[in-house]
Design a protein around this nucleic acid. Sequence first.
DNA 1: CACTCCCGCCAATTA
DNA 2: TAATTGGCGGGAGTG
Length: 897
Amino acid sequence: ENIFDRPKMAPKTPIKNEPIDLSKQKGCTPERNPITPVKIIDRPQPDPWTPTANLKILVSAASPDMRDREKKKELFRPIENSEQSDTPDSLQYDIVDDNTVDEFEKQRPSRKQKSLGLLCQKFLARYPNYPLSTEKTTISLDEVASILGVERRRIYDIVNVLESLHLVSRVAKNQYCWHGRHNLCQTLKMLQDAGELQYGELMTSQHKEQDLDYKFAEQKKETIPDSQDRPLLDFSEPDCTSASANSRKDKSLRIMSQKFVMLFLVSKTKIVTLDIAAKILIEETQDTVDHSKFKTKVRRLYDIANVLTSLGLIKKVHVTEERGRKPAFKWIGPVEFPENTDELRRHSPTSDPLPETQRGACAHYQTSATGKQRFTRHTSFNSAQPCEATRRKVSSEPNRPHQERQAYIVNSDENHSKMINLAAVCRQKTEEDIGNKPCDTEMILNSAKDSNVTLPFSLLRVPGDSDFCVNPLPQAVFPVVQADVPNFSLPIGISSQASHPFTPVAFKTENGKPTLVPNQPFLCFPSSSLFMLCGGLQESNLSEPLPAAGDLGSRSAEAHAAVPPTVCQKRSSHKCSSPSAPVDDEEPAAKKQTLEHSDLPLSLVVPKKPSESPKAEYSPGSGCSAAVHLEMNRLDVASSTVPEVADKKSTKSLACQEQEKQSQKKDPDDPPAGNEHISKENANQPFQPQYLYVQPTAGLNSFNFLFSANQTSGAISLAANQLPSLSVPCVMVPSGALTSFPLICSPSFTSPLSPVPDGSSASATTNFSMSSLASTTPVFISTTAVVTPKVSPAPLVDPQPPAHAALHLSPVLTRSCSAVKLDSPVCRGHPVSLLKLQQPSSAPVTPKSIRPAHHEAFFKTPRSLGDPVAWKKNEGNQTRNASSVQRRLEISSTSPD
DNA sequence: CACTCCCGCCAATTA
DNA sequence: TAATTGGCGGGAGTG
């Protein structure tokens, strides 16, 4: 034993015991020595609960030394091992250690070994970066502390920082829930946004590089009014959880951590020196600059920096300034997305957030909401807690558990489970492939940018498959919709005009039919997997600033707008079935694609349009289309991009992509056009297609959907002619799949949420209503604004009953739809309308719909978002208030009524 | 000596 | 009131 022990010890470092170890080894007093006597003793007992605990106890009983050793071992463990129980590890250690043991011992473990950074690595090693959605990992502070051999206090330091980034959330007293990095990009994005608000101005104006920072910092102090900070704080940290508690002191570490991260995200150079950061963070601190205070701040920053370093987000560097060299940290985490998003947001609506997708819904929501968004975010983030707002939005259903809803919305954390997992996996892979940047999104974004496209929508995963599902109906048939979309194309202008919002109401499109407003974004959830899509996208923004805000929502909306024109088609196997759809289609090219394949959901993409695009050809007007194209391309291309995107979002993308691709490929049916388009798109993007589609195979679950922007309706309608009408941007179709499929909602999805379970085929239901659940019918959803206006006002209904979900189809749609029937429920989102083809079922669909306003609600904000600035300002005020959030929710919520 | 930052007291919050 | 959280700063380790 001794032998082993030594080695073990040596390497590691006993935490507290260090001295002891030495002594022992040395021969001094074996046991603990004088040096630091220790607490060790104290510690030992702590965790009985742990699996290993028993062992430990025994060990300790046997001899104190043993315990110490073990502790040490733990520390040493490789990260990998960390999770493993203590005992097992020992062996490893031993091996390793042997040689040097003595030496090490002599050396002492020393401080470094005890460092927070190292401890954090160990901590992180215990949990997966991208845990499956389903599994929730709870972290017991006591347990972890014991396992890692440190005092609890230290764990708090780590957890607080992780919590600020939403990697974990506190669920209960000694319990934290591990979320992993699924939402990291989102969180960072949020922080970036927040940071820009707070600090950005300063930065921008002045920035230069580091120096600027200083100034910047100073300025900030001045400039930044309280409000700003707080808001940031609020939203960022407090999140949901604490909201109530906000008042508390959340202060420090958490907030400081977020602010610190913000500085990096806002900084051009991505390098922040400690002193600057300390000054800035000092809260604004104030003025009083006590030296002591400064010192304390720096200490804390080191603590935070150690954790962030362990997370791989920053690294230590030295900046040489006039005065000399200063310690500084450089951001090595994903930056992009943030940037992209920001840019996108601000600049163009288009921007998209695919990346966000993963984050999912969250992002969307957030985006949508302007100022409020933040709130949302919070909420969303905290998976643990349901964000009420979110829920509301999401669900209409009151009943549902929060989680589910959240999931939808968010990414959920939990719900998604599978999907998520997949996504995660994909993501990871992607990342790897890519290079790793954490944010896939970035890539995506970039690509998008390049292309101009933005992603229009983002996908979200949906959590449970079940939940929303729409099932494809058999009927599903929907075959499709093909929409062609060309028609659609909405004029861009429109979109812009509409822009926003809500306006949804119909536009007319070329056809004259009204379309929906494109703007809306929509979401889809696939069944099994769900994805949500948001569309949006477009850049239309041009005109509008709206969305600027960034919110995704906005974007989405935009996108929609843009998109709308396009058609969507879905194919899916259904197509087969009924393929027919009318297709009239349009141009073929369009849009369709189908996919069969798998279940996977596809993601869709929405294209945004880029500007340029020739693609737009079709509809140029619609920028949308372009966007779409892009998306399409991407999708097609997908591979490349998609994946990335997917990552963010979740896997889905990837999957989707692939599927799509494949499917597309597969489907020859589809007119090649689709493919071509895609190709083209890639190439140029001539197309504009906007639609997305997704499909699943028939058999499978997959479902498909499309989105197009506009067309949808038409598409839907099958033949419809095109009606272009709908503006819906998207449509979903389930394939038959299965079951369930999720549904989508448009922006508003809020409502939808409901899950339907099942797989049954039922379809449609979107969830929301689920009631319908059963129905099978496919649903369509479009966003059209047109349709439903429901919400608009804010009412929130949160709960809506499922029934209504239905939604609203727009008349037009309806008509067109008529062909199809909707059955199911539709979502509520206003924007979205579902169509069912057949059965009316379930849900009562009423048209409640029509509420025009929805869109807004939906995203609430898009518009609002539009201006980032504005919202920023707003934020100040509102921000915190839930109210805002609520509002959003409300709005969004379908509430129909 | 300066930089890091561990350690743990003890206040604020919670349960 | 006990337990949990977590601010805070002394002061030690490191280079």
